[in-house]
């Protein structure tokens, strides 16, 4: 090759043996360094597994009434005791956990989806549209959430129940309502990310390659904004689980035959003096789920923060 210019020769021998380091692999390496996050991830995984396959192993029906064993403490027959109708609490918790966690994850997706959508529109448009969207965001942030939540559920629960059945109706309602009240932080986060990312050289370079606006957003800006959003999403799962528990505890969540963790607490509160185990175990489950999710979010924050180089 006459007249060709070999690039610096130092790069070639190293390139042959070195393993590929993608951004996700790198993040995983950093996540593993966060001990508490790793332990939390394991505990959380066990919790999820228990809820998913538990009911297949512990085959006691959740609504088997046994008046001879009312409000019984933990025993071999009922590892977590029973409630006032003698129903097995372990079975109820395993079943209810599915719904609690499902509500958490689904509500997170609603919140994050809405937040990313509104945040990226505001961040990309700027100007008046941005101002209007941020005004709406502030409006939602300043609403007194609990009273509004209670009002919405009170108003719409029955009509939705008639359409899609009690379980699904309440699920949709709760997920929507929780998502509708949790998108604001994500929207602000995404908007801020967009403001800094859209000025980046690689975005302009992509424009020079002939990329359309939508392509710029979806392929070039959004993936770079994803780190903080993933962190916010994990925290949102925890927040949604708490919100569902709160609603159920106030008696506006799921009906008594769907024993979510919050619903179990609600049912247990009148018998706190005679059967503390009834409230203890669901409370513990909520606590464990929320704490571990938050720690995992912490670990992800460290892993995905590009400024942290270790």
């Amino acid at each position: 090759m006459a007249g060709s210019i070999p690039a610096s020769a130092t790069a070639s021998p190293a390139a042959a043996s070195r393993p590929r380091v993608g951004p996700w692999k790198e993040a995983w390496r950093r996540f593993r360094k966060h001990r508490l996050a790793v332990v939390s991830a394991v505990v959380l995984a066990m919790l999820v597994l228990a809820v998913l396959i538990g009911p297949l192993v512990w085959r006691v029906p959740i609504d088997e009434i046994d008046f001879t064993a009312r409000l019984a403490g933990p025993s071999w027959e009922h590892p977590l005791g029973t409630d006032d109708l003698g129903q097995d609490l372990l079975a109820r918790m395993l079943y209810g956990g599915r719904i609690s966690l499902a509500v958490g994850v689904t509500a997170m997706f609603v919140a994050v989806g809405l937040g990313v959508l509104i945040g990226s529109i505001a961040g990309m448009a700027g100007g008046k549209l941005d101002a209007a969207l941020m005004w709406v965001t502030d409006l939602f942030l300043s609403l007194p959430q609990l009273p509004v939540l209670l009002l919405i559920i009170y108003l719409f629960r029955d009509s939705l129940k008639d359409v899609v059945g009690p379980e699904m109706g309440v699920f949709i309602l709760i997920v929507t309502v929780i998502g509708l009240f949790n998108w604001m932080p994500v929207a602000r986060l995404v908007r801020a990310q967009f403001f800094s990312l859209r000025e980046k050289e690689f975005v302009e370079a992509a424009r020079a390659l002939g990329a359309s606006r939508i392509r710029l957003v979806v392929r070039h800006i959004l993936p770079n904004a994803l780190g903080p959003v993933i962190v916010a999403a994990t925290i949102d799962v925890a927040a949604a689980i708490i919100a569902e528990s709160t609603l159920s505890f106030l008696g506006l969540g799921f009906p008594p035959d769907i024993p979510t963790w919050g619903r179990l607490l609600f049912d247990a509160k009148d018998n706190l003096d005679f059967a503390p185990h009834w409230a203890l175990f669901p409370g513990l489950a909520i606590f464990l789920a929320v704490v571990t999710i938050n720690f995992v979010g912490d670990g992800l924050r460290d892993a995905l923060d590009p400024r942290r180089v270790q």
Binding site: P23, E201, E204, A205, A208, L209, A211, S212, H220, P306
Partner: peptide, 26 residues
């Protein structure tokens, strides 16, 4: 905009000043 996109890189390429930040890190 669409007509310009068809020209960018296909007919006229552009090289930027900052190679360190002109590539998408992800």
């Amino acid at each position: 905009g669409a007509q310009m996109r068809a020209i960018r890189t296909k007919q006229i390429g552009f090289i930027f000043q900052e190679p360190m930040t002109s590539l998408n890190p992800v």
